[in-house]
Write a protein that binds this DNA or RNA. Structure first.
Length: 568
RNA sequence: GCGCCCAUAGCUCAGCCGGAUAGAGCAACGGAUUUCUAAUCCGUCGGUCGGAGGUUCGAGUCCUCCUGGGCGCGCCA
């Protein structure tokens, strides 16, 4: 099935050829109803290229446009725009097709990629905090969308399970550990001993040396320290898993940093042999002297003390993803501060002749009401599990307020769907680079661009179907007589145009904005067009529109990783 | 010092390749409801798009400079 946009683009292209003009311009959705449904500025572009008058060029194009089966005669407007207004019959037909299409009109890509998406990446022995929401939720959504588009996707959790912090953790484990506390809340106890060791090391050089010694032993594979490390990792993974379950996040593989340990020496050796890396001040570095703004920013791949760092690991990770996983596309979803690092890593890969498509997908931060990085009053990171728990509690109290007689188990499940959905949507509905202010009241509001608002639109549809009973038949053809119907139908047809564009700039917020608009359109339709009380053929058509609306909302929210309740 | 990101309505934010008179939501104000769940809808008010130049038919969008914020820059990740 083709979208109107694609259809008109083909027809425009054909018209340009027929008019002996080069292919130019695109079809876009009209941004204002006065300009019809679709528009193109092709004539403006061509007029500029050829030094002709835009409206004259537009006239030449229009004469060759064969769109009578899709839209009303195209209009020239403004400086030389060509506007298209869909014919009702075409809209009715397309909407009917949509009704029978599992994919709601969304085409699969004709250039499937083998993608690995690296997102989330929590650290062992540290609690997950609000800061992990962005990468986790964004990466998950991009994975869902890429998969839906027909790409082959591997979701990889690049866990921070190796590094210098383990010197302190192990020192703390041996000297400060409270077993009872560890049983009670493992991560809290790990954090406590880490902090304790850190403070001690800062105050006492002997402790600092001891921590370093523990690290060296761990890295050398010494049995006791290795066992401690394994326990820490296992405890942390348990905690991560609980969060992922709540969030409905799934990984295909979880290759932590430690996975790459035994590959690191070979990486350095290879880079030295090929001449890409060289010794400098005792360390082994890769220089980028031919790139002006990287000229004085070498990438260290082996420290002076012979140890490896995260740059080494990341080079090995690229090797693994391209070599072992056979990926041609690598998406890394992390915060913006790591841009320089990944630029260097990708540049090294290019210099080694790797021709995968590397993307560092960055994002901004979550801020508190004070517009600074979100922290607790004591200045600590806000624990993710606390945020999720509070989201559910707050959603629950809304349900209690609005729907008190609902059974207990149902309330609990709906509270989870709404609470978690609200947190995710607050994140995804914003452009990923924007730092946004975390606000419970705003994200759980039933008004405005929020998950509950969208979920509520879905619930209203379901309510109609429950009331209607089971005698619902899918009509063979729709009748869209009321403006409320056609506006909604047009919006439904645009789902297939919007979804593919999300991956352009990795912007789930574009999908969120679309779903909001759809919910708006539905609510307007709902007000203006009675469904069950209307006569045929309107009744069937309206039921069909309701069905499509629910399916698009459900699918769209699912692509954002958000669920829908049947009641709320 | 160098580099990256950000600055749009009172508040929170959209605005992908430059396209028509810059859009939402919240807040404020005014309407609609004995409902297919008003957890909603309709309307009004509100902007020198941080500043100054430039590129062109056209700039919130691209270029240069400036201001103000965030972040990063050799042995943490």
């Amino acid at each position: 099935m083709e979208t109107f946009q694609a259809l008109l683009a083909q027809k425009l292209s054909a018209a340009l050829t027929a008019a002996d003009l080069p292919d130019a311009g695109e079809i876009t959705q009209a941004r204002d109803p006065r300009f019809g449904d679709y528009q193109t500025s092709a004539a403006l572009v061509l007029a500029k290229q050829r030094g002709e008058k835009p409206r004259t060029v537009a006239q030449r194009i229009i004469e060759k446009l064969e769109v009578v089966d899709v839209c009303e005669p195209p209009q020239i407007a403004g400086a030389g725009f060509i506007n298209f207004t869909l014919r009702r019959a075409a809209l009715e037909q397309k909407t009917t097709e949509l009704l029978r299409d599992e994919r709601l009109g969304v085409a699969t890509t004709d250039a499937p990629k083998r993608i690995v998406i690296d997102f989330g990446s929590p650290n062992v022995a540290k609690p997950m905090h609000v800061g992990h929401i962005r990468s986790t939720v964004l990466g998950d959504s991009l994975a869902r969308i890429a998969e839906f588009m027909g790409h082959n996707v591997v979701r990889d959790n690049h866990i921070g399970d190796w590094g210098t912090q383990f010197g302190m953790v192990i020192y703390g484990w041996k000297n400060l550990l409270d077993r009872a506390a560890l049983e009670q809340d493992p991560i809290a106890e790990l954090v406590r001993i880490y902090k304790g060791a850190n403070e001690a090391a800062t105050a006492d050089p002997a402790v600092r040396d001891a921590c370093r010694e523990e690290l060296v032993k761990l890295q050398a594979g010494e049995a006791e320290n290795f066992a401690i490390w394994q326990q820490c990792t296992a405890l942390s993974m348990g905690e991560f898993e609980r969060a992922y379950q709540l969030l409905d996040i799934h990984y295909d593989i979880q290759r932590g940093e430690s996975f790459y340990n035994d590959r690191l020496p070979a990486v350095v050796e290879r880079l030295c042999t090929s001449g890409l890396a060289e010794k400098s001040e005792g360390a082994v570095c890769v220089f980028f002297r031919d790139i002006p703004d990287l000229a004085d920013r070498p990438c260290i791949i082996r420290k002076r003390d012979g140890g490896y760092n995260y740059a080494t690991t990341d080079v090995a990770t690229v090797d693994y993803r391209i070599g072992d996983l056979q990926r041609d596309t690598i998406w890394i979803v992390t915060g913006a501060p790591q841009q320089l690092h990944f630029r260097q890593i990708f540049e090294i890969a290019r210099r080694e002749g790797r021709n995968a498509d590397f993307r560092h997908i960055t994002h901004g931060s979550i801020l508190g009401e004070d517009r600074k990085l979100m922290k607790t009053r004591s200045g600590d990171n806000v624990a993710l599990k606390d945020v999720l728990a509070e989201a559910i509690v707050r959603a629950r109290s809304l349900i209690d307020e609005k729907n008190a007689d609902m059974p207990e188990a149902e309330k609990a499940e709906i509270a989870r769907i709404i609470g978690i959905g609200a947190v995710k949507y607050a994140d995804l509905s914003q452009y990923r680079m924007t730092d946004y202010v975390f606000s419970w009241d705003r994200m759980l509001s039933l008004q405005g661009n929020t998950a509950p608002y969208l979920q509520n639109a879905y619930v209203r549809v379901q309510s109609i179907f429950r009331k209607a009973g089971e005698q619902i038949t899918v009509p063979n053809e729709l009748v869209l007589a009321d403006p409320g119907e056609s506006v909604l139908a047009k919006c439904l047809c645009q789902f297939a145009e919007v979804v593919p564009t999300v991956l352009n700039g990795f912007r789930p917020n574009v999908l969120a904005a679309y779903l909001f608009e759809l919910a708006n359109g539905f609510h307007a339709f709902y007000e203006a067009c009675p469904v069950l009380k209307s006569d045929e053929p309107a009744r069937s058509s309206r039921l069909a529109l309701c069905n499509l609306t629910a399916r698009v909302l459900q699918r769209g929210l699912e692509l954002l990783g958000i669920g829908v309740p049947e009641k709320m």
